[in-house]
Design a binder for these strands. Structure first.
Lengths: 237, 237
DNA sequence: CGAATTAATATGTACTACAAATAAATTAAT
DNA sequence: ATTAATTTATTTGTAGTACATATTAATTCG
């Protein structure tokens, strides 16, 4: 365990503390760099490093002359950087792929909770488009749109943002097999039908079957994941 | 849309590009700051800002004299900072709470996929401890341990790390009601029984019932979430 | 009164110097 | 000769200063 935080890291926290103590609200402007550096008792270089770190987390935005203003921290700010860096290892990639499957199956209750006409109409329209084309690429796009709409319908903004990230990720990293459409057990149409007049429980079961190709795909997309011992991370409790 | 990235941000990406182009592996050491600054054609100040940002994302670790070494980017590095900053808005908090429920219900298939004796034994032991105490605080701890074990059993390391973060988050932000244990429909014992000789589908249904108190809690923990329009984020596709 | 120009100001970048830590090398001691 | 202690060299960490650049605010001119 490395206990010694670098000064910039300490200042990063100090700034957050300073913000909450002073009762700053979103949109408020922080003191200018020179002042803040003096207030916190560090050089401007260190302060700027700390600010830079806060910026990547979405805590602040800075503009010339205008200064530093507080923004709502986007949970997926850094996430995005990592995903798009291409340095993600296979294991993490598979982990995320699995998580998405879990979410799509597990979101059923929230779909029924936030069910609205407009979403159902959107889904209906996508299905109609699907029935009008045979182009594989087009069908893939529509498939993504269908599931994307479900995420939106869940009423969970963070989840929707997360899903968008994963979409771009797996579009490049985990291309589909050509026969995915044929082998699907449950169609989008059936899913919509259940959404309209079924139950959350039924939807979960149906969605699990609908995703069967994804489950099967995993073996080929992410071969023999090394099952490393997770026991070593027991200290946190 | 602000197109103008600051130099440090550009350098941040350049470094990532440099790493992948040079074929650096995890554990490898990057050129020292002075060299890297010269290679990329910027001052050391800017380079250090970029490195600092990469460090918060878990891409690198630096030590005096030893230099900068590549590490596996932890997806939740920045995540953690945000969660522990206390600046998370209510909406995001509720979002995360919901996501956790989705995951617990949706992870069923993976539990059955990675089912092992030792995990089942762990769960059994927790249940036995539960039956031996009446202390509310102790029961809460055991409950967390039970679900935590399930996450571990899912075989998804990232998910397990995520869950750990959320645990600490909701321990402080979303305290339980006192009657949670009494109102539970499905017990841990029943869940374990299904895990032993049931199906994933049955487990999902059972888990949904088991979590009924959580679903009910949400109304009081996170009152009337503002349903903001998510339509404005349509540009990404 | 409005448009164009100028001035003021805060962030962005660079350079230099030195402090602090630590790995490597060297010396001293058993 | 091997180990322990000490010195040295190197690299990150921090500070200060100076200037570039962009943008808001003020001022001037038509």
């Amino acid at each position: 365990m490395q206990k010694e935080l670098t000064l910039a890291e300490q200042i990063e926290r100090k700034i957050l503390k300073y913000i909450s103590e002073k009762g700053y609200q979103l949109g408020d402007a922080l003191p200018k760099e020179n002042e803040l550096a003096e207030i916190l008792g560090v050089s401007r270089v260190v302060l700027r490093e700390a600010l830079s770190r806060l910026r990547i987390l979405g805590f602040i935005e800075t503009k010339r002359k205008r200064g530093t203003v507080l923004t709502s921290p986007n949970i997926f700010y850094g996430f995005k950087t990592i995903l798009s860096s291409g340095t993600l290892d296979k294991d993490s990639l598979k982990d995320l792929y699995e998580v998405r499957l879990m979410l799509e199956i597990g979101m059923a209750d929230f779909l029924f909770l936030h069910k609205e006409e407009r979403y159902l109409n959107d889904l209906q329209r996508i299905i109609e488009e699907e029935n009008m084309t045979a182009d594989s690429e087009q069908l893939t796009k529509l498939d993504i749109r269908f599931h994307s709409t479900l995420y939106k319908m869940s009423g969970n903004k963070s989840l929707y943002a997360f899903q968008n990230l994963l979409n771009t990720l797996f579009a490049t990293y985990a291309p589909r097999r050509k026969d995915w459409k044929v082998k699907q057990i449950i169609s989008h149409e059936s899913l919509l039908e259940i959404l309209k007049c079924g139950t959350a429980d039924a939807f979960r079961t149906a969605m699990r079957l609908h995703l069967n190709t994804r489950f099967e795909n995993m073996g080929t997309l992410f071969p023999e994941k090394a099952v490393k011992a997770m026991e070593e991370e027991e200290e946190e409790a």
